[in-house]
Design a protein around this nucleic acid. Structure first.
Lengths: 134, 134
DNA sequence: CAAAAATTGCAAACGACTTGCAAAATATAC
DNA sequence: GTATATTTTGCAAGTCGTTTGCAATTTTTG
């Protein structure tokens, strides 16, 4: 493992949310070139250490987000107000996906799921400001 | 409805699979500028006539795909061999999503799901070629 | 430690998509 | 129905996330 790959992997391992290349490029802008960050991400995903998905949000546009690869994968919620992720826990779709695909003769190798909306913190802020007069 | 918007909407309405801007630009390259196609897609989605999702595939890269907006939305499977979509039927995730979000105080406004792998036709081709010697 | 292999930084390129602007089409006013 | 205001379009240039060619540096191997 080179220094760049170690930095990328450890950052994602310690993050509590999916991490984008842009975030990593910002964090390591004085240490690694963006090309190196992108190549490290590809290398780590190719080696099975990372998983990723693409998500579009109004603040950051369309970006790929990375998480550590784990045996039992999780899914995420993305808040349209604060643009942070909330962990939705372990995947609960496997049985349903197996049924949908078996019915149609499909060999499913992966699936992507995420939900978007407003997180509890942002919802609370709205309620307070609406309920408080003047 | 202008001619460009009508063309875009009718093409998507008649398609049996999600349609990308690139496909529409190709189809109407002698009639409409790509900018017009993109603006028509934005207009129609804004007016609630279309839904879209982003998907990455090895052949076409990262693109947004559009489908007609209908009351009961569907989900799609994408084949990594032939890069076509298979209809997975009406969404069966609503109850599960409602539970996951309620538990966490999240207000979910939409969700994205798709599966990828090998479709039945491509799987059949592989099996034949593997089983046939010489 | 030298030679071979892999990785990096830089700069340029790529592809999906967006935008400014002037011209063309469409809608509205009279 | 023709003048005027509004919307939409095509073109060209630009943006943004990401990729790539290449020479230089680092790492691995013998």
């Amino acid at each position: 493992m080179t220094k760049a790959r170690t930095h990328v992997l450890e950052t994602i391992a310690q993050a509590k949310e999916p991490v984008s290349a842009r975030q990593l490029c910002g964090k390591f802008q004085h240490e690694h070139d963006p090309a190196t960050i992108y190549r490290a991400l590809h290398y780590l995903e190719e080696k099975g250490r990372l998983d990723s998905f693409i998500l579009h949000c109004s603040e950051h546009g369309t970006e790929r987000y990375y998480v550590l690869h784990v045996a039992e994968h999780r899914h995420w919620f993305h808040c349209e107000r604060c643009h942070r992720f909330t962990d939705l826990g372990l995947c609960q779709f496997d049985a349903l996906v197996a049924k949908m695909s078996a019915d149609r003769g499909l060999t499913v190798t992966s699936h992507t799921f995420y939900a978007t909306g407003v997180c509890s913190e942002c919802r609370a802020k709205t309620k307070v400001s609406v309920k408080t007069p003047g």
